[in-house]
Design a protein around this nucleic acid. Structure first.
Length: 566
RNA sequence: GCGCUUGUAGCUCAGCUGGAUAGAGCAACGGACUUCUAAUCCGUAGGUCACAGGUUCGAAUCCUGUCAAGCGUACCA
């Protein structure tokens, strides 16, 4: 609709120029928007105001001229007004909106999908939690945002791959091994303390006990008399524990994510880049280019003159690589795999890393605008307004699995999307379980269920949905204000998808869903769909079925179910 | 110190690539079920958009500065 109005204005302006009424045939990029107030029409443009400069005329005068030259060949315009400083307000006939219902029914599950992405290959990496412990709330938010952004981009015409980066290498895995090893020794009755820098959670105990049961005898053979040796990472026992624990925990992570409806196309192992030599190859390449240099017996990446505050170490004095080293290799590898765009989802506390990743892309000749980071702010886990005690040190925390089991996947996902990712989020377990207005998921799902109820009743009256979703149906009996308003909101859906894809922010769709749901509930309370009037009934069924489809398409992107009854 | 993010109703937040009278929900108060699901709706009330300047026809939105909160600024991962 906006496109159509834009075209009408441009044609009008061109005609005005040909007639000599306008001085220039330069037409700046105008905005067409739906005004907040009904008194300002259905659609409004600032065309006259932004043209004041090039036309060297007052905005209201330009508006007058353009309007006089406008040709409404489709017969959709009821009235045009000039308002305020020079807005041109369009009041449209009801019939202008009707074709969109047909479009929604025809396109069905594809309504809202775009070719905006033009098949560009996008890799979105998210969660990527270390396999050293269970997922918690923060991971949950990242998981849902990443998964949903991926869905939205795919819907908007990108070729999307979702990936999980497994940090299965380095210090934290060794620490994991030591933690399990010591718990194992404790389970055999050895008098030994678990060091403070080890993982304290109960799940470590569980793994140790499991190991004891499965291969306790073989493991026990690896114990040496010297307790001081315990923490040396070369110990076979520790290596076995590390490998077993990491695999076990990763398996649980995968399971939890599956329960949460989060699917990945690929699981990428950090260790695999060491095994294949890719990390060292990458470092050598940069050494040759003098971008990695030696200082103080360590090797540094020149990130400072590429926007970072200082250079960063990639190989430490002790000749071990840093996390950054494999990260460089990984991010470059993403591009060599052929992706046009790379998106990472990180916790906001990692924001300092953006500059250094950008620096290494820059040094490799990759445009940094091909790389986006979605920074997710904190989640505060509450129960009835009170913070839930979360002590990682003591190993006491509510896991993501606990939350899903308690409140359900739908409620959890929807709440994670209920705030823009750049503001912190209060996740209240009590509210998430409540079936009230405070809990937005039911508000939206209820729309879907209510419409399903109406359609079921229609069917029992012998009215099949084929009848009212038919392209040739006459919907001209839709005259109520609420009905036209609903169609207007429905027509916005593709723009909402575009905006969401542009900003990589699902929250745009969340806000839209709330608006649509609110408009529907208002309509539902005021007007009956199924009435004695056959034509009106069919037209209204056509309308609410279209609402149901748009709600369904949105919830599908969110990974939230759209129930037919509640 | 420097950098990033945030500051909007009593509370939780939208609105931010400049537009007309700044919007929801919760909490408060008053109403609506003989009906297609009341997990809903309607109404009332609630504001120095942190503060001060600047840019212009026009600023919650852009720029600068100040204040406040969170985070970051490792040869940690």
């Amino acid at each position: 609709m906006k496109k159509l109005i834009k075209k009408i204005i441009i044609l009008g302006a061109k005609k005005a120029f040909q007639k000599g009424l306008l001085k220039a045939d330069i037409f700046p990029n105008m905005n067409i928007e739906q005004p907040r107030h009904d008194a300002h029409g259905d659609l409004s443009t600032n065309f006259a105001m932004i043209s004041a400069g090039v036309q060297k005329m007052p905005p209201r005068k330009i508006a007058e001229i353009v309007i006089s030259c406008i040709n409404d060949s489709n017969g959709i315009i009821k009235k045009i007004e000039i308002a305020g400083p020079g807005f041109i307000n369009f009041f449209l006939k009801d019939q202008a909106w009707y074709p969109f219902l047909k479009k929604i029914h025809d396109q069905n599950k594809n309504f809202g999908s775009l070719d905006y992405g033009k098949g560009e290959k996008v890799l979105i990496e998210f969660v990527s939690a270390n396999p050293t412990g269970p997922l918690h709330v923060g991971h949950g938010r990242g998981a849902v945002v990443g998964d949903t952004v991926g869905n939205i981009l795919a819907f908007a015409g990108f070729d999307v791959q979702k990936e999980y980066y497994i940090n299965d290498s380095g210090q934290q895995i060794k620490t994991l091994g030591i933690s399990v090893w010591i718990r194992f020794l404790q389970s055999l009755g050895h008098d030994i303390e678990l060091p403070k820098d080890c993982y304290q959670g109960n799940y470590i105990n569980d793994i140790a006990l499991e190991l004891n049961k499965k291969m306790g005898v073989e493991l026990a053979k690896l114990i040496t008399k010297n307790k001081a040796e315990v923490e040396k990472d070369k110990k076979d026992g520790i290596l076995i524990c590390a490998k077993y624990a990491a695999e076990k925990i990763l398996k649980n992570i995968k399971h939890d994510l599956t329960c949460f409806g989060v699917k990945f196309n690929n699981w990428f192992s950090e260790q695999s880049m060491y095994d294949s030599g890719l990390v060292m190859e990458t470092i050598e390449k940069f050494k040759k280019k003098n971008i990695i240099y030696e200082k103080d017996k360590a090797w540094w990446f020149k990130t400072k003159n590429l926007g970072d505050e200082k250079d960063r170490v990639v190989i430490k004095k002790n000749s071990l690589t840093t996390y950054f080293a494999s990260d460089i290799a990984y991010h470059l590898e993403k591009f060599t795999r052929g992706f046009d765009r790379v998106i990472d989802v990180w916790g906001a506390d990692h924001h300092g890393y953006i500059k250094r990743i950008n620096a290494c892309l820059d040094a490799s000749g990759i445009k940094t605008n091909k790389f986006d980071v979605i920074l997710i702010q904190l989640v505060n886990l509450l129960r009835d307004g009170e913070p839930v005690a979360m002590s990682t040190r003591a190993g006491e925390f509510v896991t993501l699995k606990n939350i899903i089991d308690e409140v359900g996947s739908d409620a959890a996902r929807f709440i994670f999307l209920s705030r823009s990712f750049d503001s912190s989020l209060d996740f209240d377990l009590k509210v998430a379980k409540q079936k009230t207005n405070e809990n937005p998921v039911y508000y939206v799902q209820y729309v879907h269920a209510r419409i399903a109820g109406i359609m079921a009743k229609a069917l029992s009256c012998g009215i099949n949905s084929d009848v009212y979703s038919d392209s040739n149906l006459d919907v001209s009996s839709l005259k109520e204000l609420e009905e036209i308003k609903l169609i207007k909101i429905l027509t916005m859906f593709p723009e909402i998808i575009k905006k969401s894809a542009e900003t990589l922010n699902p929250h745009v769709i969340f806000t839209y869903l709330m608006t649509l749901a609110s408009a529907f509930h208002g309509y539902y309370n005021k007007h009956k769909v199924i009435t004695e009037d056959k034509d009106l009934t069919l037209a209204r069924l056509c309308l609410v079925f279209a609402v149901k489809k748009v709600i369904g398409n949105s919830l599908f992107l969110f990974g939230v179910s759209a129930p037919d009854s509640m």
